[in-house]
């Protein structure tokens, strides 16, 4: 089974907690047959996006076929955020965008003009935008779906497919909003069956959050898919096909 992990983090630490290195991450990917991982900052969500984007791409340059960097920007910076995003996405190495309204401290609706501009930049570059979701008050699954409705040409991904309490909502929303996808990263096997049955196997991608925790998390999240009870064809789409399709829009995976 081919696997692309659409949700991982690569940073030196998360506040006081050391995080796995790029070497450790690739070693774990080898162990579990993960071909490539989309990697996001952690500390860059707390500030200094530019330097964290630079640091991320420096690390991923060491494993260009395995680690795919996603840029982040701070929408609170207004037009400067759009400029930063334009610059990053003009660099072919950045293949997508990660936003985390909870950690970045903004409600998308309070920055609608900026957010709309950012998503249009991403859409122009064929870059998917993945949001943390499932956590009030800035990251409910409904809030992220609303953002997707603002810019239909953008590809928006629920980073946790509803996480704990929003899974049913996520299933309905990816069914109803054409440009909205769900990254299965956190919910469990019984939830995955519902996401696929309701939203469609073509709207759900695998993600682990590996990097924010140790290698065991990658194994656990793979188990979540393997043990869910999907058909082989559905599992292939979730583990690989859908991520490959979204990433290929910007030039191969």
């Amino acid at each position: 089974m081919r696997i692309i992990d659409f949700h991982t983090h690569l940073d030196r630490h998360w506040l006081g907690q050391p995080l796995p290195t790029a070497e450790a991450m690739v070693a774990a990917m080898d162990r579990f047959d993960v071909e490539a991982s989309c990697v996001f900052t952690v500390m860059g969500f707390y500030g200094n996006c530019e330097s964290h984007n630079e640091a991320l791409v420096t690390e991923t340059d060491r494993y260009p076929d395995r680690l795919i960097p996603f840029a982040t920007v701070d929408p609170k910076d207004g037009p400067a955020a759009a400029e930063e995003l334009e610059q990053r996405l003009s660099d072919a190495r950045f293949r997508g965008v990660k936003l985390h309204p909870w950690l970045q401290a903004f409600a998308p609706s309070m920055l609608k003009e900026t957010m709309t501009g950012l998503l249009r930049v991403a859409a122009r570059h064929d870059a998917p935008v993945i949001f943390h979701d499932g956590t009030p008050p800035y990251c409910t699954t409904f809030q992220v779906a609303e953002v997707a409705r603002w810019v239909p040409e953008a590809t928006i991904i629920l980073g946790h497919a509803g996480l704990a309490d929003y899974v049913d909502a996520a299933a309905q929303l990816i069914r109803d909003v054409p440009n909205l996808y769900a990254c299965f990263c956190g919910p469990r096997g019984g939830d995955l069956l519902h996401l696929v049955a309701t939203g469609g196997a073509d709207k759900v991608l695998f993600g682990s959050d590996f990097g924010a925790a140790t290698w065991e998390l990658l194994a656990e999240r793979i188990d979540d898919v393997v043990e869910a009870g999907l058909t082989a064809a559905e599992a292939e789409q979730v583990f690989y096909g859908n991520a490959a399709r979204l990433l290929q829009r910007r030039g191969g995976c």
Binding site: R188, G189, G190, D191, D223, D224, E227
Partner: peptide, 9 residues
Amino acid sequence: AEPRNRYAV
């Protein structure tokens, strides 16, 4: 947490 989660996992 059956049926949300799976014993094997």
